[in-house]
Design a protein around this nucleic acid. Structure first.
Length: 275
DNA sequence: ACCCGTGTTCGCTG
DNA sequence: TCAGCGAACACGGG
């Protein structure tokens, strides 16, 4: 389930599970070649076996693992795509379905990278120089890495004729915003997602920036909190408007949530309160 | 069977 | 040259 909040939870999990641990064994699913960069399972296995996990960082939707191979730094860049997830299992436990990579750690646990659709990516980064990875270098500001620069966001919006909801999903504009949180942020900011990005006034840009941060923070708290058990799959839809077509607007203004398609993705909004 | 999907990249077009 | 568009990737679930 990866947008910024889910990737942040994955980073926190990996810190608890793997920081300071040594990777003793690596297994890969041969069908999963396409997620590897470079694309050979053998190269991935050779590089990671024996390495120690030092730090786990996050930039937008990207997980950045800093490893140590006998004094030489090595980076592992993990992008979860649509369906990627890191899962911990005790030694000998049955693997989850679609486990594509298994990292056996020195405490006996096994980290599984599960990814049914294979849209994720795992990339070795020599010297842990993540700024040399083009997709990472091109990222815009991360909404949780310090206060967002409203002027910079306004500039990025002013240069586009795209609908604002589509524009804020561009990772060069805001790192970590995906399809769900783009709808949620527009709703919180009371901005119509169909508006051209360049049409927003400065005050609206400020509202949008705050709305993005608030939506992300709530998403993280929801998944990190003690109620994890029933937020897991099968629970209620935790979002304000996403996937709520036809329901009443949560602001109680009498509007109904509408669905439309923008840039081949579903958008949800209330045309009554979002202008 | 058919449609939909929390993401990104690539090739084409104007 | 570049912003924008639509297809493609691959598979499960409703």
């Amino acid at each position: 389930m990866p947008e910024l909040p889910e990737v942040e939870i994955a980073a926190r999990n990996l810190r608890r599970w793997a920081a300071g641990r040594r990777i003793e064994r690596v297994e890969t699913d041969p069908r999963a070649r396409r997620i590897f960069r470079p694309a050979t399972p053998a190269a991935l296995s050779r590089a990671l076996t024996g390495a120690r996990v030092e730090e786990i960082g996050r930039a937008g939707k990207n997980l950045l693992l800093r490893l140590d191979r006998g004094g030489t730094p090595l980076g592992l860049h993990s992008h979860l795509g649509m369906t990627g997830k890191w899962i911990r299992r005790e030694a000998g436990a049955a693997p989850p379905s679609h486990s594509r990579v298994r990292l056996a750690l020195d405490d006996g646990a096994v980290l599984h990278y599960r990814d049914p659709r294979l849209f994720g990516r795992l990339r070795l980064v020599p010297g842990a120089r993540f700024d040399a990875v083009p997709e990472v270098a091109a990222l815009g500001p991360d909404p949780l890495a310090g206060p967002l620069d409203v002027g910079r966001l306004a500039d990025a919006l002013a240069r586009s004729r795209l609908p604002v909801k589509v524009r804020i999903m561009d990772q060069r504009v805001l790192a970590g915003v995906g399809n769900i949180y783009a709808s949620e942020a527009c709703f919180r900011a009371r901005i119509d997602p169909r508006r051209k990005a360049r049409s927003l006034e400065r005050a609206e840009v400020r509202r949008l920036a705050r709305a993005v941060v608030a939506a992300m923070q709530e998403g993280i708290e929801r998944q990190e909190g003690p109620e994890i058990a029933y937020v897991e799959e099968g629970g209620e839809n935790p979002f304000l408007v996403y996937a709520r077509e036809g329901e009443r607007c949560p602001r109680g203004d009498g509007g109904r949530i509408r669905r439309l398609v923008q840039a081949q993705r579903s958008t949800y909004f209330c045309a009554r309160c979002q202008r």
